[in-house]
Nucleic acid binder design. Structure first.
Lengths: 360, 360
DNA sequence: CTGTTAGCGCTTTCAT
DNA sequence: ATGAAAGCGCTAACAG
């Protein structure tokens, strides 16, 4: 017992291996391996003894060794822009839950809306041998896509659906969500709309929605004054500040399309403290339908996005692919219009510096 | 080129391995390995050729093989109760960010506040060879702790600090946060307080805070009417409903201590729609200080918890441990009292069915 | 500074 | 149904 003293103990693991279990159970390692991976080919007798051995020894399989030998890591990766937004956290929760249920473990990375970081992190996940990858959005470098196909792991772009996408995707059609919102507002008599949204450079969904708004307005013969478009970050304070800037215009918009519910909430808060009546003087729409949105004053008219559904569908898709099952490349999970009380008929445009007659 | 046709291609990986790089660069595999792990011991000449080989072949290291050979997976695991709560998502973001910066990858699991699930998921992470583990809370089975010590991976309990804890921890002292809140309210003249919080059975922090409230009240010679304690879940709707139940009591409380800011928001929303004046008729406190809390009507008096700081401190602690660096077992990251406008002097207790004189 | 040589713990043919 | 044996891709002595 002193000959291999130099052989370092695995730090960080109970040192019991499959072979120990085999010895203890009086079978070969191969049989224990079969028991672990395909128990039905093992005799009842052996099964019983192996089970007992595992229990008494407290054996834990070594997944890296298994991954090396079998080419299956039983891990799936995800790279999301942030977890700050309840939207992605819910997607990830649903995703992880589905993975765990199917015996997969999640490797998670956050890109912070940075394309290079997304690429870099995805590389690392691939090095770790993730068998599949969930991503957000679809705009990424050719190099990234070529890595993905070269490595050959299944992947899925989430949060968007395009029937003509060349990549697997699951999500909804962003354009129509904005069309619905614009139709709604224009139908209420709004002619001068404004937009407060994120950074289209780092976010293809934002870019798509912005274009869709312009197109929708055009379809009504309206256009979008560039001064009425504010690109900002996703915080309450940013939403508030954006509204202040909009209200400082000499021709004020009668409605604001906020890029997400956080921004919309900020707008509502700022409107409240400035005594701007919503929807009397100003209509506000959001995007995302956070849990809080229906409770705001007034409850927010918004688009409900299928956060959990996307996470689940992405997991199901990848798992099906890994199992060799046929499954459609693209899944549409519709977003829904939620009509609430933050939108109403357009008032005559408030005059600069002349708002705030009632409220407050 | 047909002799090893049976040798399956690694599905899911570019088939280039370290040996190929070595051949291409005209060096031995060992040198390539050194280049990867400790470049400074490799000659400039070799470095150059290896770099080129890696680039032209598009080589990606196989981390499972590396983990097997070196006993280092370069992964760290985390099990959190949920990501629904902005609190844990921010912690995880900060944690992951710090890990990635130090070359570690995050394996994430969600327990949904279930002790068995937490144990089970931690096991899986350990099987995957995580070199360290971040957990939330400290109440778990002896079996769990014994696994942790047997396996010998560093771990840290987060979201709490106890100077006498036998386990590494980072967070704050829950008791004093509640003491501050109670002192504040009692100082304002409140004598009949109520509590709306989570499920103490599944959450040791909740249990601790609840006990701390009772103790704090006692220190003022007050006690907590059991009918004024509502254990519920963390949603806006639950907060609203809880307030309704409280207001239905024949002796109504003049203040509510909500277990977190989501619940507190729900209380505020319900108060608003019932026309209950806050803080005129009812004072409300939260816990957590979410981004939205300062924007609510009225802005919420709450406790700011150090979410990101906990994630970072946990990462730093584990990384230091893995690097063999000395580092204290326990880190206190104080929570701070945020006095805002949702608390005020106690009114004379509102009579049952007689509230709501002004508002709405 | 570099190459050679053994494995890391497990799976998987191929026999039996 | 089971065992023997040959690696999976990489690292880590050791020797030079």
């Amino acid at each position: 017992m002193e000959n291999n003293a130099k052989k370092r103990q695995r730090p960080g693991r109970a040192n019991i291996k499959l072979e120990d279990v085999a010895i203890h159970a009086g079978v070969s390692p191969a049989t224990v391996s079969r028991f672990l991976n395909n128990p039905k080919v093992v005799s009842e007798e052996a099964k019983k003894r192996i089970k007992a051995a595992i229990a008494t020894l407290g054996y834990m399989p070594h997944r890296a060794a298994r991954a090396l030998a079998s080419n299956h890591s039983r891990t799936i990766g995800a790279v999301v822009p942030t977890l700050d937004n309840a939207i992605f956290s819910r997607q990830i929760m649903a995703f992880q839950n589905r993975l765990a249920f199917n015996g997969y473990t999640l490797l998670l990375a956050v890109s912070e809306y940075d394309a290079d970081s997304e690429f870099q992190q995805a590389r690392v996940l691939l090095e770790h041998g993730v068998e599949a990858l969930m991503l957000v959005g679809e705009r990424r470098s050719a190099e990234f896509y070529s890595l993905l196909t070269r490595v050959g792991v299944p992947f899925v772009n989430t949060w968007l659906y395009r029937s003509d996408s060349i990549h697997p995707c699951c999500g909804f059609i962003h354009d129509s969500t904005q069309q619905v919102l614009v139709d709604h507002l224009v139908g209420l008599g709004h002619r001068r709309l404004s937009v407060i949204t994120g950074q289209p450079e780092n976010n293809d969904r934002v870019a798509t929605r912005l274009n869709a708004i312009v197109a929708a307005l055009e379809s009504h013969g309206l256009d979008l004054d560039p001064r009425c478009v504010i690109n900002t970050h996703y915080s309450y304070a940013d939403g508030r500040e954006a509204l202040r800037r909009l209200m400082a215009l000499d021709e004020q918009p009668t409605a604001v399309l906020a890029g997400n519910d956080v921004l919309a909430s900020g707008v509502l808060f700022e409107a409240h403290s400035q005594g701007i009546d919503v929807p009397g003087h100003l209509s506000v729409t959001g995007f995302g339908d956070l849990a809080i949105s229906e409770h705001l004053y007034p409850p927010l008219t918004t688009i409900r996005t299928p956060k959990e559904e996307i996470g689940e569908a992405a997991a199901d898709f990848l798992i099906a692919r890994l199992a060799g099952r046929e499954t459609p490349d693209r899944t549409e999970l519709p977003a829904r219009f939620c009509l609430r009380a933050s939108t109403g008929p357009a008032a005559t445009p408030a005059l600069a510096h002349g708002i705030g007659g009632d409220g407050f």
